[in-house]
């Protein structure tokens, strides 16, 4: 819990985070969420875990800027972004984006925009650990 934008090692509870956002305004009529998880397969190889690295300070500032841009650009009421930076295993939660709006359209649009922009603009990197060796991920599909 806490700030609407967080980078943390520990796992998060979707239910707790959605409830925190929902309780901020009774004008919210729709909440869209995006949950990014660690896959066990990538580029034709088994992936046992993923290790994340961030540029501390700049990464959180970039997330904060994204949230503020989304609030200005879309007809939404509130947004929160949580990104884990640690070593996660296949199936673990990585990133959570929650957007609350009066109506579903802007909530979905802003949620999609936030995850797409996060991948382009936030200085976070991931290394996939596979039986064949470690690989830094360079693309953001």
């Amino acid at each position: 819990m806490g700030s609407r934008v967080r980078i943390q090692e520990e796992d998060f509870s979707i239910q707790t985070e959605v409830e925190a956002l929902r309780s901020c305004s009774k004008r919210i009529g729709g909440i869209a969420t995006f949950l990014g998880c660690a896959r066990d397969f990538s580029e034709g190889r088994d992936v046992s875990s993923i290790s994340f690295e961030q540029y501390a300070g700049m990464a959180e500032a970039a997330l904060q800027a994204l949230r503020e841009e989304a609030l200005a650009q879309f007809d939404i009421i509130e947004a929160s972004i949580i990104h884990r930076v640690t070593r996660v295993h296949a199936g673990d939660q990585i990133v959570l984006i929650i957007v609350g709006a009066e109506h579903r359209g802007p909530a979905f649009d802003a949620c999609r925009w936030l995850i797409d922009e996060l991948k382009k603009r936030v200085p976070i990197w991931k290394k996939e650990i596979t039986p064949e060796g470690d690989t830094w991920v360079t693309e953001h599909p």
Binding site: H83, K120, V122, W136, H140
Partner: peptide
């Protein structure tokens, strides 16, 4: 100064 590869979060 930070020298960084393309970002890959999410």
């Amino acid at each position: 100064v930070a020298i960084m590869p393309p970002f890959a979060g999410g």
